[in-house]
Amino acid sequence: MRKPSRRDFLKIMGATGAALLAGRAGAEASEEHHVNNETIGMLYDATKCVGCKACMSACKRVNSDYGSLSYEQAKFDSDGLWDAPEDLSGSTRTLIKLFKESDKQWSYVKYSCMHCQKPSCVSVCPVSAMTRDKMTGTVDYNKDACIGCRYCQVACAFNIPKFQWEKAIPQIVKCDLCKNTNLLKKGITACAEVCPVGAIMFGKRKDLLEEANKRLSENPGKYLNHIYGEKEVGGTNHLYLSAMQFNKLGLPVLANEAPAEFSEKIQHTIYKGFIAPVALYGTLCFVALKNMKGHGTDDKHSEKEEKGESDHGA
């Protein structure tokens, strides 16, 4: 009986490690992922926004029933007079915030889902509750599939998906471009529809990019020369123009590679065609069976011995 001890063991370990290493190497090689500019999105121009919050009201008015959104009370507001969300939350899909550096340096900023071209939340959802529509590029959420694991929240670089912590029957809440409400009825998102100053432009990504570039070239010095979301995390369908640094407006500085590309490459390398796990199982079975055979004689011997003892063993 050969003892397949540490040597064999380390071999198996090595094989696993190699697979993982390969995954690492594969992930390093940057692979162009396809950006679909025909998908729909929005362009928010922070220099045009007047902070009227019509978009916030419209979003709740239109989506409240569908997204089970409720109004948020401020601490000082015992009468429940105002909807006073401080941040995106389980009842707020879009929100206008103010960044004020000084009396002259300030900007409004609107938050809502970025509708990534390669969304992390879709990549990580174990039950396909988060989906990305191939045609429109809309990242949508299906509460009937969702198990509430909140992995999407962990994954999203923009911290967009929000969970209803205070509810016994909670769900994830995020912008779905009014997919089932305003977009369906009027062909435009509620926030873009009501914006009185055209700060929110709704349309195809290519048109939005064209418009953004036009504004940049026509108003030199007015904007920061960067379209936020054009390249970030592999491109997003919600784009931003601003005169302020984007990270000051709460939009993180991000690499151009989608995090989902990185994780999926590693995951795919390990589990490609499920070959590695099956091979592992086969090898282990082989080794274990060989070991068992080696002990076969011992077993019979011990069983005989134990039969005698079994009565008093119980």
């Binding site: 902070g51 919050k53 916030m56 009201s57 709740k60 008015r61 109004y71 401020a74 507001d77 009468d79 429940g80 007079l81 105002w82 909807d83 006073a84 969300p85 401080e86 941040d87 929100l95 206008i96 915030k97 103010l98 960044f99 004020k100 409004y108 900023v109 000051k248 407006l249 709460g250």
Partner: peptide, 22 residues
């Protein structure tokens, strides 16, 4: 008697980008 407001609108102030304490 005060009536309940069923469709509140946003308060006339802005949450800061950096909420400090979340």
């Amino acid at each position: 008697d005060k009536v309940q407001i069923h469709e509140p609108t946003p308060f006339d102030s802005y949450a800061p980008v950096d909420l400090k304490d979340k």
